[in-house]
Design a protein around this nucleic acid. Structure first.
Lengths: 362, 362
DNA sequence: CGCGTTGACAGTCACGTTTCTGCATGATCA
DNA sequence: TGATCATGCAGAAACGTGACTGTCAACGCG
C-alpha cells in the first residue's frame, strides 16, 4: 500500500516509472531493468512477461535518469561558426545542409541524435545540455568553445582542418589545394590564358588554403593573380565582387568562384558585359546546388562531397566516444569531385540542348 | 577524509561536482546551489564567494542531474517528415534550412536548444532524449510519433496545418489558398490566358490545399486545368514534369510551380521549346532561394516567409512549455510574400540589364 | 528577562535509472 | 549425503542536483 502510494507520488500520472512496471509484473526493479536491457541472467519467460507489462503500461525509461546514471546521453553537438547574428553561416548553405543531413543520418544509425548549437551561444546553453561529443564545422582560429569542450574531456571532431593549434580530437577535410590546382589545370587545358579567382575575406582555412594554392599556381605558370575578395557571408557583396572582377582592365578569360552563389552571380555579370560562356569566359564554382545543372549554360562545379564528410565526421566521433580504437586515421581527407559541364569547355560536348538533368547521386 | 574520498570517487577527475565546490568554499551544498541559482536568502558576500570558487574550479552543473530533478531539459525536438532514406526532405530545402535557422535562433534566445529528430527514427532514439516539446514540420496524416508525444503530455507545435485529426498543441502556417489565388490573379492580370500548375503527388496539406485552390480558381474563371504532378522528393522527376507540361498540346502560357527547383526546370524546358520568358511564357515558382534574382530572366517567386514561421513556431511552443497563457491564438497564419520579377511581367519594368541583387532581407 | 521573529546556513530526501552485491533454491558431484 | 555451483531474482547504493525542513544565533519587543 505504501508502495503504491510511493509510486503514485511520481512526477506525472501519465508517465509510468520502472517501479510501476516492477509492481505490475510482480518482480523487482532489477529484474525489469535487466529484462528490458537484455542484461543479467533471466529465463526467456520472465523477459517476455516483463516486456509485455512494460508495453501495456506504455513505459518509457527516463532519458535524464539514464544519462545521469550511465554518463552517456546519446547526444552530439553540431556547431557552425557564425558570422552575423544568425546561428548558421549564410554561405556554403547547400554544403552545410547536405553535410548536416548526412551527419544526422549517420548519427541516427548508431543511436545518436544531433543538437544544433551555434558557437556564439552563451555558455549557459552549452552547459545545459549533456553532450557525448561535438562536431565543429570550420572552427575559427582559437575557438573558446572548442577549447572548453576539450578541457572537459569531450571528443571534438572538426569538419575542416583546425586553424592554429586548436586541440581537436580529429578532423576530416578535403584536399583543397589539390582541388584548386586541379581546377586551374582543367581551365588551362580548356584554353584559359588568364584565370581569375573570386574569394573571401574571412580567415577560415578553406578560403586561406584555396587562395594560397591559387597564388602559388599563378607564380608557377607565370600569370599575374587576378582576384576579388569579399565577405562571404554577405549575399549582396558576392554579386558586386563578381561584377568588379569582370570590369577590370585585365579581365580574366576564366574564373573560379570559391562560394556557392558565385556561379549565378558571375553568369549575370557576364551577361551584363556581353560575354558569352564558355566562348569568351570559362566558369567554375564550388557548389553543391543542383541548379547549376540547368542554368544557361550549365556550370561546372566542384563538389566537396559534404555527404561523405558528414558521415565520416560522425563515424570518427562516435568511435572516439565509444572508445573504439578506430583503424581510421584521426586526420581524414575526402576527395573532391569536379562535375564538368558546358561552362568550362570550349567545345560544347554534343548539343546545346541539355537533357533533363540526371539524379547526380553520390 | 571520507568526504574527500567520496568526492574523488565521482565520474571524471576533470569535472568538479557541486560537493567539491561546497567543500572548497567551506559551505554546504545547499548554499552553493542557492548562490548559483539566485535563490534562498544569502548575503551578497557569500554569493560572490561561492561564485568565485565555482569559477575557479571550472564547475559546470550536470545537465543530466538538473534535468532529472527539475523535469526540464531545455531541449526541443525538430522533426521533418521524410520521404526516402534521408532524414530531411529534399524539396523545399531552402525553406527548411531557413526555417530551421530561424527556429534555432529563436529557441536559443530563450535558452533552449534544438535536437534534429527525423520522424522515421526508431522509437528508441526518440525516447532516449529528454524533450520539453517538439516542432513538427509538415506532419503526415496520422503520424504515430506525434500521437505518441502528445500522449506523453508533451507540447507539439506543427509547421503546417495538421492533416486529419492530428492532436497537435498548436500550429503555424501560411494561407496557401489565398497565396495561390493571388498568384493566379497576378498572372491573369499580366495577360495569361491559360495557367498551368506544376504540383506534387504527395498528400501533405501544402500540396493539397494549393492544388484544390488552383482547381477551384480554374472552375471559377472557366479554364480547363492544365497541370502535371510528380513526386516532389525526386529532383529528377521535377525536370521531366516541367518538360511534359510544356510539351502538352494545350500548352499553358503561364505556369506556377509549387516547389523550389521548378523555376530553373521550367526555364530550361522553355529554352528547349524556344519559348521566351516572359513574352511567350509567364513563370512563378514558390522558393526561398536567391538564385532566382539573377537567373535570365529573373523569376518571380512566392516566399512562405520561413523565418517568420520558424520564429513563431518556437515562441508558441516555448510559451506552451513554460505554461504561459499566450495571448497568441494557437492557430497562427503567417502572410506570404510575392516577389515580383521579370518572369511574370509582360512589360519588363525598365531595363533588361538587371542590377546586382539587393540583400532581400526579411 | 523571556519569547517570537528573522537571517544564514546545514541535513536530508527524492528525481528514475543502472549496477553491484547477495541470498535463496535446486541441481550436480565426490 | 553433504559440499559446491549455477540459476533466478531482490536489496540497496550510487549518479548530481534542487527543494524542503530544521537548527542556531542574534535581535526586537513587551
Amino acid at each position: 500500500m505504501s508502495r503504491a502510494e510511493t509510486s503514485r507520488r511520481g512526477s506525472r500520472p501519465g508517465r509510468a516509472g520502472i517501479r510501476d512496471v516492477a509492481a505490475a509484473a510482480g518482480v523487482s526493479i532489477t529484474t525489469v531493468s535487466d529484462a528490458l536491457n537484455g542484461k543479467g541472467r533471466l529465463p526467456d519467460a520472465t523477459r517476455r512477461h516483463v516486456r509485455e507489462v512494460a508495453d501495456r503500461l506504455g513505459y518509457r525509461p527516463s532519458a535524464a535518469a539514464r544519462t545521469l546514471r550511465t554518463g552517456k546521453s546519446g547526444l552530439i553537438g553540431l556547431t557552425v561558426t557564425t558570422y552575423g547574428d544568425e546561428p548558421f553561416t549564410f554561405t556554403e548553405f547547400a554544403y552545410f545542409a547536405e553535410m548536416a543531413r548526412a551527419a544526422t543520418s549517420a548519427a541516427l544509425a548508431r543511436g545518436y541524435a544531433l543538437v544544433i548549437l551555434p558557437a556564439t551561444s552563451r555558455h549557459d546553453v552549452w552547459s545545459n545540455v549533456a553532450l557525448d561529443g561535438t562536431v565543429v564545422i570550420d572552427p575559427s582560429d582559437h575557438d573558446p568553445v572548442v577549447s572548453e569542450l576539450v578541457r572537459q574531456g569531450l571528443p571534438v571532431v572538426s569538419d575542416g582542418r583546425p586553424a592554429g593549434s586548436l586541440p581537436v580530437t580529429a578532423w576530416v577535410d578535403n584536399d583543397h589545394e589539390a582541388a584548386v590546382l586541379g581546377i586551374l589545370d582543367h581551365l588551362a587545358d580548356a584554353g584559359a590564358r588568364r584565370i581569375g579567382l573570386l574569394t573571401g575575406t574571412t580567415t577560415d582555412t578553406y578560403t586561406h588554403l584555396s587562395t594560397t594554392a591559387y597564388l602559388r599556381w599563378c607564380e608557377r605558370v607565370g600569370q599575374d593573380p587576378v582576384y576579388e575578395a569579399y565577405p562571404a557571408h554577405d549575399p549582396c557583396a558576392g554579386a558586386v565582387a563578381a561584377d568588379r572582377l569582370l570590369a577590370r582592365p585585365d579581365r580574366p578569360d576564366a574564373v573560379y568562384g570559391l562560394f556557392d552563389p558565385n556561379g549565378t552571380d558571375l553568369l549575370a555579370a557576364a551577361r551584363r558585359y556581353g560575354l558569352r560562356v564558355p566562348e569568351d569566359l570559362l566558369l567554375v564554382c564550388c557548389s553543391e546546388s543542383t541548379v547549376y545543372a540547368s542554368t544557361e549554360p550549365p556550370i561546372t562545379t566542384l563538389s566537396l562531397k559534404p555527404r561523405r564528410i558528414g558521415t565520416a565526421v560522425i563515424q570518427v566521433l562516435i568511435d572516439a566516444i565509444e572508445g573504439l580504437h578506430s583503424d581510421q586515421p584521426v586526420e581524414q581527407v575526402i576527395p573532391t569531385e569536379l562535375i564538368v559541364r558546358t561552362s568550362s569547355q570550349r567545345r560544347p560536348p554534343r548539343t546545346t540542348v541539355s537533357p533533363p538533368r540526371s539524379p547526380e547521386r553520390e
